[in-house]
Design a protein around this nucleic acid. Sequence first.
DNA 1: ATGGGTGCAAACAGTTTGCAGTTAC
DNA 2: GTAACTGCAAACTGTTTGCACCCAT
Lengths: 160, 160
Amino acid sequence: MEKDGSKDSMDAFARECRDRGLKVTYQRMEIFRVAVSTDEHPDAVTVHKRVKKRIPTISLDTVYRNLKLLAAHGLLAVVGTSGEHLRFDANRGPHHHFTCVRCGMIRDFTSEVLAALPLPREAQDLGVPLSQHLEVKGICVACEKKEQRKKEAPRHKRDA
Amino acid sequence: MEKDGSKDSMDAFARECRDRGLKVTYQRMEIFRVAVSTDEHPDAVTVHKRVKKRIPTISLDTVYRNLKLLAAHGLLAVVGTSGEHLRFDANRGPHHHFTCVRCGMIRDFTSEVLAALPLPREAQDLGVPLSQHLEVKGICVACEKKEQRKKEAPRHKRDA
DNA sequence: ATGGGTGCAAACAGTTTGCAGTTAC
DNA sequence: GTAACTGCAAACTGTTTGCACCCAT
């Protein structure tokens, strides 16, 4: 699926919706078209504004609902940790983040390999870089352990 | 400044405050102590809860104000894009982000060098990684141009 | 003493939810 | 026909702001 909102990609999207039991509504299609036609990572209000040009009566909450729904189905993603509360970081040195997708915990790590990494040219083409850090998403050891336990001992209903 | 809230680091912090004309209040010190004593990247409510143990009467908005103030002074940082609106990304392939610190624009880029990069061991120690992407912060070409113009032609008041 | 800082309460903005009517399947 | 979806309005939550008092400098 290219990021252009072409007929092909919209057809593919419609198919993916039906596959998941999601109805293919005009609103949903237009919301997706707008989202997929830009790489500015718009927020819900921006998407709403743009969709309104085609569907003047569409409501903001329909946009929210659809973006969230599509995100839940993996048809699009929420950028970074956006939308969560403000989180603060008193570690002022260069470091990277490991974010647990289960519990939301963010842990720092440092890496000499990464520190030595030159900034890719593709990024330099976009502007003057000031800092860079790697965002790793995954499942932290604590959550991993929890899930292991569930698998290993499903006969106990300790995790009702 | 180590991330331990030791007397030394607190003294250093007090000095940095005074250097910037910020008053060294009990509340401010405790807020910083909490922030710097953890790498969980707590949100304001969490910080508030912890500071309350020492200062039961502290208000949540004092915590907000101080965290924001300290962030503005570079004494701590706001994590990722947190706190902004929800932003959505329909680019489902692996890609990285260039975020402009001036205008907030986020642009995607891909990089074969990065794609080939093995995940550092330090991250694997924290859990099972699912995805990784580089977050580059800097000044985008548009903002860069704007600032150049200001420097080069200050005699014209085209940028009043 | 005095300007910044604090606490309170009220305002705000973005997001979510309940409901009744509508639409895709 | 029915379950999913939409639009509206009201609720909610995290964050910000105005104001009067207080405290570090």
